Computed example of a mutant assay.
Amino acid sequence: MILEQAILYIKQGESKTFEKTFGEARKIISSMKGFIKLDLLKCVEEIDKYLLLVSWETIEDHEIGFRQSSEYQEWKRLLHHFYDPFPIVEHYKSVF
């Protein structure tokens, strides 16, 4: 299993709209091959900051299967305009 992690900084004042839109976008990613689960966490200390965690079967499921799909274009259209700056996405695997 691979864990995708991204810290999302949302443009000031757009968090409520982002959360609603993310609810729509979640349907897209959860339908993709290799998707296991997703968690979107809201920061307690910073109102417009979120932590996105997505579990994938393989890194290829995320980077090729999802990111190179037509579904990703819709994900991008729905969400990418909320980010400032654009998030850095990293992948992790269990050590033990």
Results as ranks from 00 to 15, higher is better:
Phe96Ser: 10
Tyr83Gln: 10
His62Ser: 02
Pro85Val: 09
Glu71Lys: 06
Gln5Ala: 13
Arg77Gly: 08
Ala25Trp: 05
Phe35Gln: 00
Leu38Ala: 13
Glu71Cys: 03
Lys33Val: 08
His91Trp: 04
Lys76Pro: 06
Leu51Trp: 01
Gly13Val: 02
Glu57Arg: 15
Lys11Asp: 01
His81Glu: 14
Thr58His: 10
Asp84Pro: 10
Glu45Ser: 10
Phe35Thr: 00
Ile29Cys: 03
Ser15Pro: 04
Asp61Gln: 14
Glu90Trp: 05
Lys76Tyr: 13
Glu60Met: 03
Tyr83Arg: 11
Tyr9Phe: 13
Glu45Met: 04
Ser94Arg: 06
Leu51Cys: 02
Ile7Tyr: 09
Tyr72Glu: 01
Asp48Gln: 00
Gly65Phe: 07
Ser55Tyr: 03
Phe35His: 00
Trp56Met: 00
Asp84Gln: 15
Trp56Ser: 03
Glu14Ala: 11
Arg67Val: 04
Ser31Ile: 08
Leu3Glu: 08
Lys16His: 08
Glu46Ile: 06
Glu4Lys: 10
Thr21Lys: 03
Met32Phe: 06
Glu60Gln: 07
Glu71Arg: 10
Lys37Ala: 03
Ser31His: 06
Glu46Asn: 14
Phe18Met: 05
Ile88Glu: 11
Tyr92Val: 07
Ile47Val: 13
Val89Met: 14
Trp56Ala: 03
Val89Lys: 11
Pro85Leu: 04
Leu79Thr: 04
Gly23Trp: 03
Gly23Pro: 05
Ile29Val: 15
Phe66Ile: 06
Glu19Val: 05
Phe86Gly: 09
Glu90Gln: 11
Arg77Tyr: 08
Leu41Thr: 13
Lys20Tyr: 14
Lys20Asn: 12
Leu51Ser: 01
Phe96Val: 11
Met1Ser: 07
Glu90Thr: 13
Ser55Glu: 15
Arg67His: 04
Ile59Tyr: 14
Gly65Ile: 13
Ser31Lys: 12
Glu63Met: 14
Tyr9Met: 10
Glu19Asn: 05
Pro85Gln: 10
Gly34Ser: 00
Glu19Ala: 01
Ala25His: 10
Asp48Gly: 00
Leu38Lys: 08
Pro87Phe: 04
Thr58Ile: 08
Leu8Gly: 10
Glu60Trp: 03
Glu46Leu: 07
Leu8His: 06
Ala6Val: 02
Ser94Cys: 06
Ser55Pro: 06
Tyr9Asp: 10
Pro87Thr: 09
Lys11Leu: 01
Ile36Glu: 04
Asp39Gln: 13
Glu45Ile: 05
Phe96Cys: 11
Thr58Lys: 13
Ser30His: 09
Val89Arg: 15
Glu45Tyr: 05
Arg67Glu: 05
Glu71Gln: 13
Gly34Ile: 00
Gly34Glu: 01
Trp75Pro: 02
Ile36Pro: 05
Asp39His: 12
Asp84Gly: 10
Tyr72Ser: 00
Gly34Phe: 00
Asp61Met: 06
Ser31Gln: 09
Glu60Gly: 04
Thr17Trp: 10
Ile88Met: 09
Ser31Cys: 04
Ile10Lys: 02
Leu79Gly: 05
Ser30Cys: 13
Ile10Met: 02
Phe66His: 07
Val89His: 09
Ser94Ala: 11
Gln73Asn: 13
Lys42Met: 03
Leu8Ser: 09
Glu60Tyr: 05
Leu53Ile: 06
Ser70Val: 11
Asp48Met: 00
Lys20Phe: 14
Val89Gln: 12
Lys76Val: 07
Trp75Tyr: 04
Lys33Arg: 15
Phe22Tyr: 08
Glu63Val: 15
Pro85Gly: 12
